[in-house]
């Protein structure tokens, strides 16, 4: 019986395609792809319906569906277009087949329903699978990218290293930060590490605890931590929460922290040439040129 139904469906291919196109065009206005041109939409519809029909006829291998879905994903067609399209196809095909049967009986109709479902279901399953695989792939790539960005360590001078932190710190990230920090201190031979929390939106007891642990561990290695970038509202929360930061030197800006770091490492920034001096020289006003 399945073979008969298939024949009916294929014989009335033109009719099904026409009906399907009508339905899907109506959905187009409501749902999606307003920016996709009508031409593209139509040609894509044609391809889509052919893929479905081929797969029903039995010569549409999974590979054909896979190629089709790959292209759809690549071009950014929404998944809802695919699922809607297949559901509409199911509806239209059922209508057509039932229209061509002389006396529809209850049992026969349920058989027909079962068959048509068995045509459409594997296609839906495969297409949705392809889509979700591609999404998962994107998510995992983004997670890796995020991790790369989550705890960078920048050696700015001999013995001075900066770790700028941006974004919320959770337990997993705190662990990662600590590992990176300690490895970096060893690698760069750092004497002072500046942890910049300008980009950390909230400092609660947990974040403070993690920061403390990291700085304590750094101290065990033999380096010093300076916490910089403490904004007024963060200072307020820290005091209101009763967190004790007295063991840890803190500064409001990276600049001030850097000066402290220079002090600790016995360094000083020397201006090679004073600005007024160089202007004097330019105008020939400095003492050296006067003598000449």
């Amino acid at each position: 019986m399945g073979r008969d139904l298939k024949e009916v469906a294929i014989k009335n291919k033109e009719h099904i395609i026409k009906e399907w196109n009508k339905e899907i065009s109506r959905l187009k206005d409501v749902n999606y792809t307003a920016e996709i041109s009508a031409e593209l939409f139509e040609s894509n519809n044609e391809e889509f319906v052919n893929v479905i029909l081929n797969s029903i006829r039995g010569d549409g291998t999974p590979q054909v569906i896979k190629d089709f879905s790959d292209r759809m994903i690549h071009l950014g067609w929404p998944l809802s277009y695919i699922t809607d399209g297949l559901l509409v196809f199911r509806k239209v095909t059922l209508d057509t087949i039932l229209h061509h049967i002389d006396q529809p009986e209850g049992e026969y109709i349920s058989e027909v329903l079962k068959y048509v479902d068995s045509w459409v279901e594997p296609i839906i399953r495969q297409l949705v699978n392809e889509y979700s695989v591609s999404w998962e792939h994107v998510v995992s790539l983004q997670r890796i990218a995020l991790q790369e960005l989550s705890a960078p360590l920048i050696p700015v001078m001999d013995n001075i290293t900066i770790m700028p932190l941006i974004g919320t710190i959770d337990t997993e990230r705190a662990k990662f930060i600590m590992e990176n920090l300690l490895e970096g201190v060893m690698r760069h031979n750092a004497e002072v590490v500046l942890i910049d929390i300008t980009g950390v939106p909230v400092v609660d007891t947990m974040v403070a605890h993690h920061l403390f642990q990291a700085t304590e561990a750094v101290r065990l290695l033999g380096a010093k931590c300076i916490l910089v970038g403490i904004r007024p509202e963060i200072a307020q929360t820290i005091v209101n929460l009763g967190i004790n930061f007295t063991d840890l030197p803190t500064k409001s800006t990276l600049k001030k922290g850097f000066l402290l770091a220079l002090e600790i490492t016995n360094k000083k920034i020397l201006e090679v040439e004073n600005k007024t001096q160089s202007i004097d020289k330019l105008l020939g006003l400095d003492k050296g040129s006067e003598k000449n």
Binding site: M178, E179, L182, M186, N189, A217, L220, L221, G222
Partner: peptide, 28 residues
């Protein structure tokens, strides 16, 4: 002065709650 404490060692010590507050340390 204690020197050359490895990162992994430092982490376990901190996790165990051993802060060795009054022990001077250095990198190498």
């Amino acid at each position: 002065v204690l020197t050359g404490i490895q990162p992994a060692v430092a982490m376990t010590l901190i996790e165990l709650g051993i802060h060795m507050q009054n022990v001077p340390t250095a990198l190498d």
